[in-house]
Design a protein around this nucleic acid. Structure first.
Length: 573
RNA sequence: CGAGGUGUAGCGCAGUUUGGUAGCGCGCUUGGUUCGGGACCAAGAGGCCAUGGGUUCAAAUCCCGUCACCUCGACCA
């Protein structure tokens, strides 16, 4: 490719609205262009990166005996009603009517399509297991896209669906998929990524993992044990139980606390009590239930993990309004709590609590020295707390840390949620109809591009790993008006392309510095210079983008050298 | 969805307070001089000032509405 004809403007100034590196640099380098909120066009270099990532994913999926298919972007309402998701999914799914006023949806995931596709074609246990996958466009009407390609509404995703006769078979395959994911991310040049156990949310199923790139700009919190290697998404992470100090239960007494409501205000007002010795009440309403109020009690220094609370309640929750006057916001406590229409959930952190401060259920008062078992009784407690750094690992007892990450892929053991609801059965060896057990496996291609950019870019610009770089070499032609320079450049261009080395030739009439800057900005891994000076000395200069190292050799050898470097810099797994 | 911010040329911005012919830098075009880390000179092209309605002799500028984008939060298969 000749850069003089490459469509996509490179700019010296950063776009003012991009706050993260990959977003800003990919715009500056002319890789992406915004069309609407969360909707992007990809220029040729970005499309080439996408294709390379897709091909690596494809190779690994094929190695798992995957069958590449294609499911539709637009699907009828009826298909999604079969699984129940037409109503259970909110505004994130785009719905519209076709010309016959038939309800349609834009595909945001394809479990329904995959099951619909497979259920009639597969009738016997002898056809299982199998995996079908696609690399295709999804649309999710995200409330708030951000970060360039990190979080978007329209994106390309690889999604795979496997079908098994037994849980054991699924688990064995799941392990293979896990390993394949590890290879994929290593091959596309990601370094600092980990797999964490995660909440499978409304996908259904039980066991799932998310692959996370660790980065400060990540939107997910990950709990990590530095000692035993436990890694979990904040949504499901648990900390070890902590015991209360053995101390004598004091007499409970009401104390005036005035307008102090939040834990920090109450501890400040009282002066002699720490947040760990308070009981916090957090109130929620259940979606679709206007009668009950959920009151979650938790140790004052901890936060409620709403993902865990949803699981306990088996329902969606939203922060409660507390407008009916039954509860006294800011002074709610487990002692003397009104019972009518109240659902109480205790966090396990309150088991055996002694001498705690909690709301008195009347304005401007709290109660001191409240003890669990004496003043209130926890018959059943749940883990509904967010882990905070410094809490102990439930496995080995070491101190947990919390880091941020970008979710770059996920794998789920789905179970029979979809095969049951959509009526997919196969006959087993006994001739009995059973629902196959499913797994599903996703990777967002655009997010992978942005994540690689985020991890590898430096102050000069992007810096693509060889395996996904849009071109392997930037052929920098200095003084293309010089006949000898031009002839040599054309010769090298043809020679390299012939050897399968992809070349972006800068044939523009620009100064050397201008071209070097563009080369660095675009992040092409190797730079080869042809100039009058270099030709005079017969000294081909090859610069490595990631290290800055410069290698020189006679021009007659440079194609060999570059071919070698291309191979040695491509990550093998 | 809540709070805040911004919309003027492809990109970055000034001009808005105090209404009076649309500006600057980068980029782009043409010509010339340069030529190994974003060269220089000269001449050009390019804008319904987000949008709809007011007010006014006159609106980028003042008033009301709408939309888009960004940030923080909520939500997120």
């Amino acid at each position: 490719m000749r850069i003089s004809k490459l469509v996509g403007e490179r700019t010296k100034t950063a776009p003012s609205d991009a706050v993260i590196k990959s977003h800003s640099l990919m715009i500056r380098a002319g890789y992406i262009k915004l069309v609407a909120n969360g909707i992007w066009s990809l220029a040729m270099p970005a499309k080439r990166i996408a294709r390379k990532i897709e091909n690596i994913i494809r190779e690994e999926m094929d190695a798992l005996d995957g069958q590449e298919c294609s499911f539709p972007v637009v699907m009828p309402r009826e298909l999604w009603e079969e699984s129940g998701r037409y109503t259970s999914i909110g505004d994130e799914m785009v719905r519209f009517k076709d010309r016959n006023a038939r309800d349609m949806v834009l595909g945001m995931t394809h479990e329904e399509a995959a099951v619909q596709f497979a259920r009639d074609a597969v009738n016997s246990y002898q056809q299982l297991p199998f995996m079908i996958y696609q690399i295709q466009t999804k649309f999710r009407d995200e409330g708030r896209p951000r970060g360039g390609l990190i979080r978007v509404r329209e994106f390309t995703m690889k999604d795979a669906y496997s079908f098994h006769m037994t849980q054991e078979d699924l688990e064995a395959y799941y392990k293979r998929a896990y390993d394949a994911y590890d290879r994929i991310f290593r091959r596309i040049g990601m370094k600092n990524f980990i797999a964490v156990t995660s909440d499978s949310g409304m996908m259904g199923g039980r066991i799932s993992h998310e692959f996370m790139l660790l980065t400060p700009i990540g939107e997910d919190s990950i709990v990590i044990c530095p000692k035993c290697g436990l890694k979990a998404n904040m949504e499901v992470a648990t900390a070890a139980n902590e015991n209360y100090p053995a101390e004598e239960a004091k007499k409970a007494e009401e104390v005036y606390t005035g307008s102090a409501k939040e834990i920090a205000e109450v501890t400040k007002y009282l002066g002699d009590v720490s947040a760990e010795r308070t009981i916090k009440a957090v109130c929620y309403n259940i979606k679709g239930d206007s009668v009950h109020t959920v009151v979650a009690f938790i140790r004052g220094d901890l936060e409620v993990n709403e993902a865990k609370l949803k699981k306990v309640l088996q329902a969606e929750v939203v922060p409660a309004a507390l407008s009916d006057g039954t509860l006294t916001a800011g002074n709610i406590g487990p002692v003397g709590l009104p019972e009518k229409n109240i659902i109480v959930v205790y966090d396990k952190s309150l088991r055996g609590a002694v001498n705690m401060v909690t709301g008195a259920n009347k304005p401007e008062y709290h109660i001191k020295n409240v003890c669990e078992g004496r003043d209130f009784v926890i018959s059943e407690s749940f883990d509904i707390a967010k882990v905070k750094p410094g809490q102990k690992c439930p496995v080995c007892g070491a101190e947990l840390t919390v880091e941020n990450g970008i979710e770059i892929g996920n794998i789920f053991q789905l179970g029979t949620k979809y095969t049951e609801s959509m009526g997919m059965t196969v006959l087993n060896a006994e001739g009995k109809a059973v629902n196959p057990i499913m797994g599903c496996y996703g990777i967002g291609v655009g997010r992978a591009i942005a994540s690689i950019a985020e991890e590898s870019a430096d102050e000069k610009g992007l810096n693509w790993p060889m395996s996904v770089a849009p071109w392997h070499v930037y052929l920098c032609v200095i003084r293309p008006d010089d006949e000898r320079v031009r002839a040599k450049a054309e010769e090298l261009y043809a020679e390299l392309e012939k050897r399968g080395v992809e070349v972006l030739m800068d044939d523009r009439a620009q100064s050397a510095g201008f071209k070097f800057a563009d080369c660095d900005l675009m992040g092409i891994p190797l730079r080869l210079v042809v100039s009058p000076r270099a030709l005079e000395r017969d000294e081909a200069e090859i610069k490595i983008r990631s290290t800055g190292e410069i290698i020189t050799c006679p021009y007659s050898e440079c194609a060999d050298r570059i071919e070698e470097m291309k191979d040695s810099m491509t990550i093998k797994v």
